[in-house]
Write a protein that binds this DNA or RNA. Structure first.
Lengths: 243, 243
DNA sequence: GCTCTCAGCTTGTTGGTACAGGTTGAGTTG
DNA sequence: CAACTCAACCTGTACCAACAAGCTGAGAGC
């Protein structure tokens, strides 16, 4: 058992063939029965190898059809900081943002410290769902301290063009923000919401928006790892933007 | 087969018990044989369920020992923008940066566009390995256009305190940078380099540093997803830093 | 010509068996 | 008492068999 196990060898062989292109993207792998003969291994062993590739996001399997080479990086959406905007990001390709639910929640230990309010403080939560192309791109929840949004459209269960503009109109101008980024595997719930195939991680972002005085909003977003690229810019980038 | 399959049910049950804490963090799960009896399923089915949890990063399995609840978020390392520094990040907790290899490479299609040089241009590549606590934290490769670093310590196979200062001393002052962030599952190579257990994704960052005139460096870094948290700040954050 | 059925392919799930090799602690041996 | 052996556990790997259920195309029936 010291040597590399059979199914890992098989996985390595197939991985190399995928990455070197002998198996074209989107192309179909041989059936499990065929691979039994080619590798002289039992179906079980073949399936262990295929399971590895699936968990690495290299293939997708469809019952009754076969195993297919996953299109690597199906589409990439930039979430680039907008230059000239009110300090926020524009996410031009991430259209289809829709309000899914509006909630009143008391701030838990995840939320309260970031908003600098005591735990249990009431907040207005707006749950949003965003599509990237024809796929689910992200799910996010925006938390507003109750006292900031009373009497504004943000209390209504309707889509709002720009929440930051609404806040600005009510005397809370965003002057900066902090993003905290983490990556991890999705929960089963997130996997089904974002329609993630096995082997696709998520990018989790906590954005805290600040006015001159205090945090005015916390946005918690979970992005599908296979359809997002995040981009940040700092400093004087005249050279970068010259073209 | 319409109903949820047996092993998924079992995985769901165990997942709930882990998340609700009936199985303490770091604690040991019952052996597979015990679970056979508890769930009235074959060892094969039990192992399928455990495999799911392992791929979700919830448990780790040790041959001869047993299955253990994974410590969630073992340690977090902030890669926070330094205020007052030369525009870079300081990564105070990410000590142990060591030079692993120095190479001369011609820029490929991944590198050349970011450095704004023709493909095939010679670059000096410094491969670095960074530890986070007692674990591997990241592996990175810094690409320097050849003409910028000729005659500097960056051409030597030795550790350099601050590469940006070296560049500045030779007339190339960093005035800004662009970060591109992606998440994905590690390649088997990365998994062994970073000592990643199954179910741990990586965070891939391309940082391009600019002087007033041109890109002066590209740093490609792969972070272990379970030991890193990235943090960005934009704008006026006097309120944020007041405490 | 059109539709419908079904055989025959595919992957998914579950059961079983056997053995390899890591780990541990009880018990033996020096 | 210390070291060593070994039985008894653990997980990892590999094999076989069987059936469920999705999918497709050939061919029967209209």
């Amino acid at each position: 058992m010291r040597a590399e196990s059979r199914y890992r060898q098989i996985a390595r062989t197939l991985r190399r063939e995928i990455q070197e292109g002998s198996l074209p993207q989107g192309g179909q792998l041989p059936s499990e029965k065929q691979m039994e003969e080619r590798f002289e291994a039992s179906r079980n062993t073949i399936r262990l190898a295929l399971g590895m590739l699936r968990n690495q996001g290299l293939i997708v399997s469809r019952p009754g059809r076969g195993h297919y080479v996953q299109d690597v990086v199906p589409e990439i959406f930039y979430a680039t900081r907008s230059r000239g905007g009110p300090g926020g990001f524009n996410e031009p390709n991430l259209a289809g943002l829709t309000l899914e639910e509006l909630q009143l929640l008391s701030a838990n230990s995840d939320i309260a410290p970031r908003l600098r309010v005591p735990e249990g403080t009431m907040t207005v939560v707006r749950h949003l769902h965003r599509f990237a192309g024809d796929r689910s791109g992200s799910v996010s929840s925006a938390f507003y301290p109750m006292d900031l949004v009373e009497g504004t459209p943000l209390m209504l269960p309707e889509d709002v063009e720009s929440a930051l503009e609404v806040l600005m109109d009510h005397g809370h101008r965003q002057v900066g923000y902090v993003d905290e980024l983490e990556t991890r595997m999705p929960t089963p719930q997130e996997a089904s919401q974002l329609e993630l195939t096995p082997g696709v991680p998520v990018l989790e972002v906590h954005r805290t928006d600040y006015s001159e005085d205090r945090p005015i909003r916390l946005v918690h977003t979970v992005y599908a790892g296979n359809s997002i690229r995040y981009q940040y810019e700092h400093g004087d980038l005249t050279a970068y933007h010259r073209d």
